[in-house]
Design a binder for these strands. Structure first.
Lengths: 206, 206
DNA sequence: GTCTATATTGCGATAGAC
DNA sequence: GTCTATCGCAATATAGAC
């Protein structure tokens, strides 16, 4: 029985692992079940056997990726860092996350731009979570007298979200456009945060 | 003959007009030819008749959208404005562009994230054009002593691109997430540019 | 748990009537 | 220029053998 369970897990995991980059690169509709099976090196019938169909596999893939960011946010919120450190911590953790899960933003923004329909609620919840996390950081930094109070916090949070996510979201493309800047995510994030902080801070001691 | 030409143009335009939001929202692969024909209110066979197939129609739709931004850049470059004004002009023009062509970023980033393959060169050219435009603005602002010279220009251009485009790219979603901020694109852009400029400027007189 | 074979549906494209 | 009918194909899913 134990052998069966671990074999089952291994096959299902192989499928999920192979499906993740495929869905990320081509989007849900453009990937066929045969493609998924071939990439995983398993028989085509096993996608339905393990997941009950392409759509369910897709939800498993996305939920697994979403969980990574959700856990990260859980961890950071518990740390109760100072607002700017919280932002820095989040942004730099995302760099780390993308090293292990390089398809997360393609999946996330792919679904955001071309929604399949079966993710409206989950995706909105995830997007809201990140937005409110960043907005809370900014609100706290304003309350503590570090950030200017004359700006719209939601816009500032979107601005910050864009600064951080845009890089990852367009990275496959930037690898061609800016080959010299490859694997420089840390540096990009550092600089983007510095510009943002400098734009938000009251004192110029930054 | 004249009647035929204008009828032909009207039908083809109806198809393009109906295809644009469909491709934007669902992505190329998820839209069927029947859907396109129904949305345009024309017979299904006319897509092949006028465009030679779904794929060709898609390239027409995207090229037409890309041309809008390309023309905008042509116009702005000719104006020879001061670097910061050039950035402001570009960002605010995009707000205007999105009022008339609200699907441009969904199409652009949809293709960027989930490439169909038939757009690699064109898309890279477009992306490069915008990136180099923004980078030139920043380089000029550094040369004129306005912007700090200690930062990576490519990263700064990406940062700026993210600030501007992220809002449009995720707008359909933000309408649900932040209903109060709807139709506030002008204000968002103003604030985003202010934060970016403040982060880049040497003097604090901004 | 895995595989082959197949059922069934929907796709994109086109020939030919009007 | 438009429409109906249809071809050929690829899609997903499943039944049943092993």
């Amino acid at each position: 029985m134990k052998a069966d369970v671990s074999k089952e897990k291994r096959t299902a995991d192989k499928i999920v692992a192979a499906a993740t980059p495929l869905f990320a690169r081509k989007g849900f509709a453009a990937v066929s079940v045969k493609e998924l099976a071939d990439a995983a090196g398993v028989n085509i019938a096993l996608i339905s056997y393990y997941f009950g169909g392409k759509e369910n596999l897709y939800t498993v893939v996305l939920n697994r990726q979403f969980a990574i960011v959700a856990e990260l946010l859980d961890t950071i919120v518990k740390e109760k860092l100072a607002p700017m450190d919280r932002i820095r911590r989040f942004a730099h953790s995302l760099v780390e996350v993308h090293r292990k899960a390089p398809f997360i933003d393609q999946l996330y923004y792919g679904e955001k731009i071309n929604p399949t329909g079966c993710f409206d609620t989950i995706l909105l919840k995830e997007a809201a979570r990140v937005h409110y996390f960043l907005r809370d950081c900014i609100t706290d930094a304003i309350a503590s007298g570090q950030f200017r109070a004359d700006l719209d916090v939601d816009f500032a949070a979107m601005n910050l979200g864009g600064n951080i996510h845009y890089y990852f979201c367009t990275q496959p493309f930037n690898e061609i456009l800016l080959p010299a800047q490859q694997n420089q995510a840390e540096h990009y994030i550092d600089q983007a945060l510095e510009i943002f902080f400098r734009g938000m801070l009251i004192s110029q001691g930054y």
